[in-house]
Design a protein around this nucleic acid. Structure first.
Lengths: 220, 220
DNA sequence: CGGCATCTTGAGTTGGGTCAATGGTCGTGG
DNA sequence: CCACGACCATTGACCCAACTCAAGATGCCG
């Protein structure tokens, strides 16, 4: 992607944005099954998306931080396939889908940008399938922490100090593990000297150690 | 989607198709990391896509049958994020990405069709995340068989008799379980009178029973 | 300060993994 | 056409990672 085009791209993107909504922590942006007419970008705050199974089981399918777009699952059927909830006070930008469809041939780079964003979501989901299907608990949590760290770094924050916005139970739901297991693994990581854990504050002490931990358990 | 528009849509789609490749069973269509210049549609046969982890672990991320499109993961970076392999002799249609980008404003419904297809893949992936993150072995296999049955039905085949194109190990990789576990669950399903299993031939005897099995294990 | 939600830790259980042996199926070549 | 060999599937015995249940600890907010 040529750097020159970026300002134009952002300008063009900006014109698609409809409104900025404010959500209190715990508030629902949209419900599974509801009519889907827009995509969303987190401006500030933190959002989760979750799938609700009939019998009450919940699977969190994503956590989105400032600058990240979500809601692509609703395009296929015009109905949301998951529920979106703010996990801290957040501001959300809305991009009406009709605006995206109106993108003309003069903004082909913008059209392509949306394809890329959806492709990125697909790659991310496949990575999660790999994590859930073939990694052990410790590997999953290490990968999760490294991923958050990476995303903070890209936003210009320190990659070594993170404040978790979600609770242990939500991390567990995302990683296919129970709260107690998450808690135990955090304690173990601390014992191993990989990180300091104090409630939601994580200080990463040994990035390389975390990376090496993933992939140690050969086989599964 | 208006039924009237369908013939036009198919005609328009057809014009994007570049070539039809023939692949022998076991042949690789593209490798992870390779340059991505196209999307693919299965014309005949059966294809799997898989993520390869450094340490040799493999996660199958999808099985695609006639009429299904795949390869969306390569759009973001122009490099394939997974490897695609034919699991039986197959014919594959290639849709060069440049053709998709050239779609003009006169074919807005076609442009939207691609958004829908990518959205469908995202929904499917989220369903898999739910399956891998919060279902037990029996539920996973039941869901898998019901999904195949459903896709056969949509293509006009009997939903009660399926011939598995993949081996047990591949089912296991897809569902995050080991070969032996898949084998044991198939045997159990047969004992329970839910289906007859003879090698790759599955005869479903009790669809309702399979559906009810999913969601019985409350909690986890 | 009290009440409630969240997090941690322990003890015991279990679903699915591992290892190992056997049984089927199919393709190839004599 | 049959026999061999390679690959795949099944089954059993045992084990361990993660779950369940239960009890405290910690922190937060009114």
């Amino acid at each position: 992607m040529p750097t020159e085009a970026m300002p134009d791209l952002f300008k063009a993107l900006d014109e698609l944005v409809y409104v900025r909504k404010r959500l209190k922590s715990g508030a629902t942006l949209y419900h599974s099954g509801g009519h889907c007419h827009a995509l969303y970008v987190v401006k500030t705050g933190f959002v989760k998306t979750e799938n609700l199974h009939d019998d009450g089981r919940v699977q969190i399918t994503g956590f989105y931080m400032a600058g990240e777009m979500f809601g692509f699952d609703g395009i296929e059927t015009n109905a949301h396939a998951c529920t979106s909830v703010a996990i801290e006070d957040s501001e959300i930008c809305t991009i009406p889908i009709e605006n995206i469809e109106k993108i003309g041939p003069n903004q082909m780079h913008l059209q392509h940008h949306f394809y890329k964003l959806m492709s990125r979501e697909i790659v991310r989901d496949h990575t999660m399938m790999m994590l859930l299907g073939s990694m052990h608990g410790e590997e999953r949590l290490a990968a999760f922490i490294l991923n958050l760290s990476q995303r903070l770094l890209m936003r210009g924050y320190s990659p070594y100090h993170l404040v978790l916005r979600m609770k242990r139970e939500e991390i567990g739901s995302y990683l296919g593990l129970k709260v107690e297991t998450i808690s135990r693994i955090f304690s173990k990581f601390q014992e191993m000297g990989l990180m300091n854990v104090h409630q939601k504050n994580i200080q990463i002490l040994n990035v390389q150690g975390l990376k090496e931990l993933i992939g140690q358990h050969i086989g599964k």
